[in-house]
């Protein structure tokens, strides 16, 4: 057990020394503070921060994550020559990547909101924080997978950015096209299901249901709103997010455990 702690101590320290991590937190703190100064409304600031986070957290997690892990090959080589099991090194690396990112982002978002006391709906803030932290964990896991499975660093970074484009933008475009193609069918359910399969959209919908989306979406929205406010709904959403972390992480582990260093 103390092996994982030793490794964590080093990987976390390494992560917390990173300029990217601090930059992320500082950016969001600044953005939040500016929004509150210009608009003043806690709810509005939260929504804008949501949009920003949904775009940036996955992107930064992917690119910084992939780049950091390609760099870490040296550390990995050093550690794997020691009497340390691979899974300990794996977990230490993942934690050292994802946790500082998630923490820096969460602090950056929460700080201006809490400091100015502008939060009217603490549950919404909590939802936003959960969403962002989940995204940091999910996309760090995907970055891990990419960097272990793809040998070439440039190709790996390209793949990372490509997957961001696909999930952050392409997915929604595809959903839109599908809804036009299949316009004759009752689509609200399938479209919603498609969106929930994308972690970014899932995070977004969970937060938005607390704002305006539920009532605007008609009958389906009302049902979904009730669903996600109930315990079953929250549990299922949590499960979906967990799956989105577990699957890429599992694939990353498979690649890592077999990899030659």
């Amino acid at each position: 057990m103390s092996q994982i702690l030793t490794i964590l101590r080093h990987t976390l320290r390494d992560g917390l020394r990173s300029r990217v991590v601090y930059g992320l937190g500082a950016f969001f703190a600044l953005a939040g503070w500016m929004m509150l100064r210009l608009g003043g409304d806690g709810g509005k600031a939260l929504l804008s921060l949501l949009s920003l986070s949904l775009a940036l957290v996955p992107l930064v997690s992917l690119t910084y994550g992939a780049s950091h892990l390609y760099q870490a090959r040296r550390f990995i080589g050093l550690m794997l020559a020691q009497p340390v099991p691979r899974h300990t090194v794996f977990l230490g690396l993942y934690a050292g990547l994802s946790l500082p990112l998630a923490l820096a982002w969460a602090v950056g978002v929460a700080l201006p909101l809490l400091a100015t006391g502008a939060v009217q709906d603490p549950q919404a803030l909590l939802l936003l924080l959960t969403a962002g932290v989940s995204l940091a964990l999910i996309f760090s896991a995907i970055a891990f997978w990419v960097s272990m499975a793809v040998e070439n660093r440039l190709k790996g970074l390209g793949l990372a950015i490509g997957s961001w484009l696909a999930l952050a933008i392409g997915w929604d475009g595809m959903v839109l096209m599908l809804s036009y193609q299949l316009a004759d069918y009752p689509l609200e359910g399938p479209v919603l299901a498609l969106c929930l399969a994308n972690p970014i959209d899932l995070a977004r919908i969970l937060v938005l249901l607390r704002f305006d989306l539920g009532a605007m979406m008609g009958y389906t929205g009302a049902v979904f709103r009730l669903f996600f406010q109930g315990n079953l709904g929250i549990a299922l959403a949590g499960l979906a997010l967990l799956l989105w972390v577990a699957l890429p992480l599992g694939m990353a582990w498979r690649a890592f455990s077999r990899k030659d260093f």
């Binding site: 103390s2 030793t6 490794i7 080093h10 390494d14 760099q71 550390f75 050093l78 020691q82 009497p83």
Partner: peptide, 21 residues
């Protein structure tokens, strides 16, 4: 190849702690 961000002392400590554990 050693992790860039660490110092010599830190890397020696790291390996020593890990082996001790």
């Amino acid at each position: 190849h050693y992790p860039d961000n660490l110092s010599v002392g830190e890397v020696l400590d790291l390996v020593a702690s890990v082996r001790l554990a």
